[in-house]
Structures are given as structure tokens and as C-alpha cells.
Nucleic acid binder design. Structure first.
Lengths: 251, 251
DNA sequence: CGAGCCTTTGACTAATGTCAAAGTATGTGG
DNA sequence: CCACATACTTTGACATTAGTCAAAGGCTCG
């Protein structure tokens, strides 16, 4: 059963990538216009908590977030959930499904989100004919691999404080890459989601935020965080931030 | 500075994949003969501790392990090392470098290892002309992404016992996939490497092995482990084992 | 045979998780 | 528009897992 049955197709029809008003922020933004000319993607609207796809569903489309935020998560056989990534505007979702034609994760909208579904078969057909697109896809996948490496580093080597700092810095860098202020970040996900993602108890997430605020690094107001001391936060984060300019396309 | 200066090219020359005596176990084993016909790979021998490449080196080749074992690891800015994956015969190394043309990891031989270097440019040139090869590469990358997801699950959700059990099961499954006994596994890496990979102290790795032996699950003799109760170990491991048949090509 | 490294074991410590409870937004129906 | 129900966040007290430190035992290689 597809969970897409109640999706609002608010443009009413497929729409060419070449016309998209999000071209500037899209994962495909560097692509030659001609490659996208005929490629049509279906814009879809998901509300908070709605699923783009389930783990195990057959791969039909890759998704690009236009607006909003999406999480992807794996579920173990015991039923506990592990969030693998958060995806903001311009990021590509579903590359894990290429291996065997079924998604490995669930993808869930964190907020009302506007997402482009790019038909996979059509994309592949084009990639075969087009070396540039092929390169682009391969690079996007390689970026996802690299980024996962950063995640392993975070989970394997960093303590609670460093994880929280890394997480906030990654958000900040993402903001900056999109042309917004690096010091004003929004956290569209719940504290529980942050905890799940960083493998920390919700309480630990709260305490870290509280402490950073007490130390004058941040000001926290619910889902809004103002970073007061970016460089201090960056040095707390240590090692990789997981968000270098070339790494926008995530799992 | 390339670390390959002291590499023994023990076949003395490049060699066609089509003739390779490891075809059966190779990451390319399903490929049509014709695709490999002209593709030449350089077999190289690395001794324990020698590096295939450093993080930051320019991508020249992808590597396929023919015999032996290789670890890939990232190093944080503080200098601590995180092993990202172990690679046995048939596995593909270096896909993380496709993103920006430089390797993200170090790759180090754990043992005397026999490795094929596949020239990346040449491979790409073929992939452009050949949809099958292209698909194969994409799938290999997608597998790496999936597998990293399993790693995140392991680090994020599993305790010491489950990690150790998962690790052993992954080894066991790999053995089975290569046609060997699922209950006799070798651990070519040190306890310290296992600990690093699983994010456990060396002492914890030892204690887990000791305990599993005491519980009659295993018999451990240095780097040889005989698994006495596969199904019990599998259920200890919980969730994903990270080694389904389709997932042989790792980071 | 000795040096050095790896592994194993024990005793203690510390970071983070768990449990409990209060405080605070959000939204729904009367 | 208010009041209550619900879900999320925050804080405190305590428990537990795994890490650290220390030391002994075993291989391996020169």
C-alpha cells in the first residue's frame, strides 16, 4: 500500500525541471539546462508526519526537497527507529534504493513539505545517454557515502557535547550554503528526533542546549536557535562538520 | 607523496579482468565478459600496515581486494582514527572519492593483500558507453550507502554485546557468501581495530568474546573463532547484520 | 632468549541513560 | 474565547553500561 494516496498534487501536473522556481537551490542546480529540458518531476505536498515512502517499497522515484524538511530512518527488527539523515531544501532522497530497487529507509515529512518526485526509470534512461547527468548522480551518491562516514565518526568518537555542537554547526553551514544567516538556525524536528539522530537521550539533548545557552554560546527559543559564538561552537564540534559545500546531496 | 612507491607489482604488468582467476569472487563477477574484455587492472601486493592511499590523495583508481584484508579509516582533526569498514576479497574500495576526486579515507592492508587497481578514468569512460557497467557502479555505490546505514544503526542503537554479535555474524555471512563455512571465521584485524570499528574499548571487546565463549556460543583462539551456536548469535545481534547477499560492494 | 606488542582480567570511575515530575506550547470542542 | 487534553520540553535524582587504569600473561620476531 502506497502512503501517497492522500498526497496533494498542488500543481496538478508534472512540471519541467527547467521551469522550476527552485532551480537555484536544487540538487540539480549545476546541471546543464538541456539535460533537464524534458525531465518532468511531480511536485507533491506532504504534511507533518506523512510518509514519502516506506522501507521495502519499490523504487519509483528519487525525491528532491523543495521546501520543508524530511527525515529518513531505518527500523530494526526489534522495532526501534534510527534516524539516518535530515533533508532540507535541495537535497536528494532515495539513493539507497538503487542497490536492489527497494528503499532501505522510511522517509517522513517533519513539516509541511514540498517535494519533487523524479521518476527513476526516466532519470536512468537519460543518464545512459548523458555523461554529465551520470557523473552528477555518481557524485551525489559518493557524497552520501562520505557524509555517512562523518556520521560514523560522530557516533563513534564524539561525546554528547561534541555531537550537539556538530549538529548545530551542520545546520548553520546548511543555512549559510543556502544564502541565509549562519547564526540563525531552525530545528524543524523535535528534541526526540535530535536525540534519536545523535544517539542521545532526549534529556541529554535538552541539557546540552541548556548548558550551551548558560555558557553564552546560544540562545534557544523552542525551535529557534541563535548562535552567539560560531567559532567557539565550531571548535567544540571538533573534526568534521559533515557539511562542506560539495556535500549537499545526502542519502 | 604516494605510498605506492614500494608496492610490488608481482604480475609485472597490467592484466585483463577477463582473465582474472578471481572472477568468481570479484565485485565484477556478474558483469558481461565483453564489458571487461579490454579493461586492464593492475594487481598490486601490499604488506601488513602498508597504505593503498591516504585521505586527500587524488582519485586515480578504485581497488578490488583479491586476497587479504583492508581497512578504511577516517582521521579527525584531533587525530583520532575511526575505522569505517573492513574489506575482504571481492570488495570495492574508493567509491567515497568520486564525489570530489579525492579519497575521504585512508586504506591500509591488515595482512599481506593482493589488490586490483582499476583506473578510474578508464572505468568512467566505459561506463559512459555502457549502461550495464553504469548500473553496476551505481548499485555498488548504493550498496555502500545502505551498508553505512546499517553501521549507523549499530553504533546508534546496539550495546556492546549486540555490536560484537553483529560483527561476528557479518563475518560469518561473508564467509558463507564466499562458499566457506559460516561457523569458522578469521579475524585478520587486531582487537584494537575491532574495538575502534565498533566504538568499544579493547577491553570490552575481549570481555565480550570471553563471555560468549563462557556461554558456549563461540570458541576463540587468537584470530580464529568457531561459532558454536549460529542462531543464538544471530538473535543476539538483533536487527540488521549488514551482510545480505546483495551487499558485497562496500565503501 | 629477550623485547615489544597484543591480549586478557580485575578494580574503580565517569558519562550518559532511566525514571519521575513539573512546566509549557498547541490545538480542539464547547 | 476559554478550558481542557495532549504532546513536547525541561529539570532533578539515581542507576547502569562501558571506559579507564593497572598489571599480568602470551605470541612473535629479531
Amino acid at each position: 500500500m502506497s502512503s501517497n494516496s492522500n498526497v496533494v498534487r498542488f500543481f496538478g501536473s508534472r512540471r519541467s525541471c527547467a521551469d522550476c522556481n527552485l532551480r537555484k537551490e536544487c540538487a540539480w542546480r549545476e546541471m546543464d539546462e538541456r539535460l533537464l529540458e524534458g525531465l518532468e518531476a511531480t511536485p507533491e505536498l506532504f504534511r507533518r508526519g506523512e510518509r514519502l515512502f516506506h522501507a521495502g517499497d519499490a523504487l519509483r522515484s528519487l525525491f528532491v526537497v523543495r521546501a520543508g524538511a524530511v527525515k529518513t530512518c531505518m527500523v530494526s527488527s526489534e522495532g526501534d527507529e534510527q534516524i539516518v539523515a535530515f533533508h532540507g531544501p535541495g537535497e536528494l532522497i532515495g539513493l539507497d534504493a538503487v542497490a536492489d530497487g527497494t528503499y532501505a529507509c522510511d522517509a517522513v515529512a517533519l513539516d509541511t513539505s514540498n517535494v519533487c518526485a523524479i521518476p527513476y526509470e526516466e532519470l536512468c534512461a537519460r543518464a545512459v545517454r548523458n555523461a554529465g547527468l551520470q557523473q552528477h548522480l555518481m557524485r551525489a551518491m559518493s557524497c552520501a557515502i562520505k557524509r555517512n562516514g562523518d556520521m560514523v565518526m560522530l557516533l563513534g568518537k564524539k561525546n554528547a557535547e561534541q555531537r550537539m555542537a556538530s549538529f548545530l554547526m551542520a545546520r548553520s553551514d546548511a543555512q549559510r550554503n543556502r544564502g541565509y544567516s549562519a547564526s540563525e538556525v531552525t530545528l524543524p524536528m523535535s528534541r526526540a528526533d535530535i536525540g534519536n539522530y545523535l544517539s542521545l537521550a532526549v534529556e541529554t539533548v535538552c541539557r546540552q542546549l541548556t548548558r550551551m545557552q548558560a555558557d553564552g554560546l546560544l540562545e534557544v527559543h523552542r525551535s529557534m536557535v541563535s548562535i552567539r559564538d560560531l567559532s567557539a561552537l565550531r571548535s567544540l564540534a571538533g573534526g568534521e562538520t559533515g557539511e562542506t559545500p560539495a556535500r549537499r546531496a545526502a542519502l
